[in-house]
Computed example of a mutant assay.
Amino acid sequence: MTDPYREETPDGWSGRVEQTWEVEEVTDGLRLFGDCPTCRHPSETRVLVVRTAPGARPEPDHKSLELTRPEPVLVVCECAEEHEGRPAGRTGCGRAAYLQLVTDQP
């Protein structure tokens, strides 16, 4: 039986995501992926990276993602499995947490 849908952040959930999920740079930002610590189903969170503000001039040679300070990112279980009590139009088991996203410094 799968875990029921519940919008919460269980103790230790974000730490397990930080330790076990992988981060991959994709065309428009980042893809964080791994198994949800609660329901253990595969999940992913995509983070869109906005490099310039509207009206700003883009930097033509800016090719890599660089975060100069930690950015809070909401990571949510988005698994495709059914969970009892999940509202229509939603995915996952409802567990989520804000993580501080930073890039590795050389």
Rank of each mutant, 00 (worst) to 15 (best):
M1P: 13
M1I: 11
T2Q: 15
D3G: 09
D3V: 15
Y5F: 15
R6W: 14
R6D: 12
E7M: 15
E7K: 14
E8M: 08
T9K: 03
P10R: 08
P10M: 09
P10T: 13
D11R: 15
G12H: 03
G12R: 04
G12V: 02
G12T: 04
G12L: 02
G12P: 12
W13F: 12
W13Y: 10
W13T: 12
W13R: 06
W13D: 11
S14A: 15
G15M: 14
G15I: 13
R16H: 13
R16G: 05
V17G: 05
V17N: 05
E18I: 10
E18K: 12
E18V: 09
Q19M: 05
Q19D: 14
W21Q: 04
E22P: 10
E22D: 13
V23P: 00
V23T: 10
V23C: 14
V26L: 02
V26Q: 06
T27D: 13
T27E: 12
D28C: 13
D28V: 13
G29Q: 03
L30M: 09
R31T: 03
R31G: 00
L32G: 07
L32A: 12
L32M: 11
F33V: 00
F33N: 04
G34S: 03
G34T: 06
D35I: 04
C36L: 03
P37C: 01
T38M: 09
T38L: 13
C39F: 05
C39S: 06
C39M: 01
H41K: 10
P42Q: 02
S43W: 04
S43D: 01
E44K: 07
T45I: 03
T45G: 00
R46E: 08
R46P: 09
L48D: 12
L48Y: 12
L48S: 10
L48A: 11
V49M: 09
V49C: 07
V50A: 08
V50Y: 05
V50N: 05
R51T: 10
T52L: 02
A53C: 01
P54S: 00
P54I: 01
G55S: 03
G55E: 02
G55R: 02
G55M: 01
A56R: 07
A56D: 06
A56I: 02
A56M: 06
A56V: 02
A56Q: 10
R57V: 10
R57D: 04
R57I: 11
P58S: 05
E59T: 06
H62K: 13
H62T: 10
K63V: 15
S64L: 14
S64Y: 14
L65R: 01
L65G: 07
L67F: 09
T68P: 01
T68E: 09
T68G: 11
R69D: 11
R69Y: 12
P70I: 00
P70F: 00
P70T: 06
P70H: 02
